[in-house]
Write a protein that binds this DNA or RNA. Structure first.
Lengths: 344, 344
DNA sequence: CTGTTAGCGCGTTCAT
DNA sequence: ATGAACGCGCTAACAG
């Protein structure tokens, strides 16, 4: 009854020594064949290869890494919310860039819990990841100073580190919303609302600031009535829209500060087609078909640049911290080009 | 000039021995403190902890794993196209499920290149990943038989393995399209088109078969004229729609076989609102707002079940291969409920 | 309660 | 061209 479905019989894994024994050579010779470095006669090489195949030998990278000073080929990407399509496109960019350099990506999530960040990072560092790419969520990253001094590149993505001098790759958040609002004011809008998550996060602060700045440029200084910075979890963004529309002087345009807010606003505006101008932050699938104007950028580029930065740090760790900014740009698709109603 | 921006000074990492020396104990005692297993007096424990902190000691998991027979805590997920949001949601499900068991996910991409699959897998196995979860792309996975016998759980996701007896977690593809088509035939449709990628992949074969079956149930046996199985890369799906609409008797309904095809069809149908019924495969953000009916399922569940299967195999490797099916269900949002025009 | 010995699988150093 | 010895960092198995 030696069936294919009999389940695996935990047989031991072959080692260099096993292969050497079978081929009648020393382990070291097998090592030379595997690494293709030392000089080995063609004949013994062939014999070793045959033995390795017969034993299904597979070099143990753990041992190899340990021997090499625990230098691995894995890079960690620490992310808050895996289900956010934005981060996943970032991850795709990282993965592809790392692959070019023979590095693999290990993905870890903090579930947007600030308290778990350090714990997750600690676990990764014990695995001796070669570099650390992360979207920070905790309010302090100074705990990474020691690791940085040990030579591990640490790159922050989407948001800069707090209390730590480190490389970062972020978006042109300020310019993004500022440009969007400028386009709206140019079309005659003045009562422009901004819906976003609470401004605790760096990105949201920057986007809010850009919004305010652009309105200030046309003389609108009191933007508070138009700002909705509650926690947006789908329905609440819709509620924000309703409360805005119920105002005595409702806004004629709305800008969303992130993709979740956009989603909520789009739902809420279904009942009011072509009345309110709308621009979202973050592009999404079929936004073109839906005619939704957005502040867009290349999420994968965020990941690529971060990965590239990590790789360059590995080759040359010295140098001042670098701060890369990924450009954002307004894509006009209709919803953002609805003109302000003429004052009557 | 010992500045914070002077770059990392590659100082050596502290080891158990270093900590022991500083604390005046043997390495083994330090090990005991770290693992919290052996019995250590509270006093020496405190001294060791202090020394570890001072030296910024971090246990080396590589060495630990090696010592433990190269048993790691990382599980690999091999994926074709990282930029497909579907797979990312699967990855999210995997990550969360693995985290419950103290396992990390390492993500590798084959870029949908069948030739690179074995190479990528080989690299992962050298890292001694604890288990292998994969969306197969190559036409043969028999090369994994050896590893399976070595006790590494191998779980196939979305598509079953070829030439290998192994666990799998797939969707109810057949039932998905069959249900969608049945709903359409119930609404009077008979000329129903099916747009998908080439039927080479298991999923597409199944979905095509479900489509044909449901039409056969109402007496439509010659579905060939309505099948468009070209490579769909956005524009070409749109072209397929155009060619369908240009027929003498154009279809009154269209079913898409995957998310990319859906996207193309939706774009192409913008010029023909409310004329053609449409149902897509795979749900997507804002499909509800757009009123698009889809055959939906929980992508994360695909990942969760696969991860759970892997974990259970780790605990008990014995047993026949398991094949899990994740249910699909039709979500009616409007586009799929457009009735067939009355014959006149 | 603590230390010593030994070895996980591999590759570098030095011989032969 | 090949082999022997040693050690990477850690932890079972034994002492004591």
């Amino acid at each position: 009854m030696s069936g294919a479905d009999a389940g695996p019989a935990t047989q031991p894994r072959a080692t260099l020594a096993d292969v050497g024994k079978l081929a009648g050579v020393s382990p070291k010779t097998v090592s030379r064949v595997m690494l293709e470095n030392g000089a080995v006669s063609a004949e013994t090489k062939e014999r070793v290869m045959a033995a390795a195949r017969a034993l299904r030998f597979r070099p143990n990278n753990l041992a190899r890494s340990l021997r090499h000073g625990s230098v691995t080929t894995t890079v960690a990407f620490v992310i808050g919310d895996l289900t956010n399509p934005f981060y996943f496109l970032v991850a795709a960019g990282i993965e592809r860039e790392l692959a070019k350099h023979g590095l693999m990506m290990i993905l870890a999530a903090t579930d947007d819990d600030p308290g778990s960040e350090a714990r997750v990072v600690e676990t990764l560092l014990k695995q001796r990841v070669r570099a650390l790419l992360m979207v920070p969520i905790a309010s302090d990253q100074s705990y990474l100073e020691g690791e940085r001094q040990l030579g591990t590149p640490v790159i922050f993505i989407d948001r800069p580190a707090k209390n730590l001098v480190a490389d970062s790759v972020v978006l042109q958040n300020f310019e993004g919303t500022a440009d969007a609002v400028r386009a709206l004011t140019a079309a005659g809008h003045r009562r422009i609302a901004f819906i976003c998550s609470p401004a605790g996060l760096y990105t949201h602060q920057q986007r809010l600031a850009g919004y305010r700045q652009a309105l200030r440029e046309v003389g609108v200084t009191d933007t508070a009535p138009w700002e909705r910075l509650e926690e947006v979890g789908g329905p609440s963004a819709a509620e924000s829209v309703e409360s805005l529309l119920a105002m005595d002087e409702p806004p004629t345009a709305i800008v969303a500060g992130n993709n979740k807010a956009s989603s909520g606003v789009i739902h809420a505006l279904r009942g009011h087609p072509d009345e309110i101008a709308f621009v979202g932050f973050d592009d999404f699938e079929l936004a073109d078909a839906a005619g939704i104007s957005v502040i867009a950028y290349d999420p994968a580029e965020l990941g690529r640049r971060a990965a590239r930065l990590a790789v360059s740090r590995l080759q040359d760790p010295i140098g001042p911290p670098q701060h890369v900014e990924i450009p954002t740009h307004l894509i006009a698709r209709g919803s953002g080009e609805i003109p302000a109603p003429s004052v009557g």
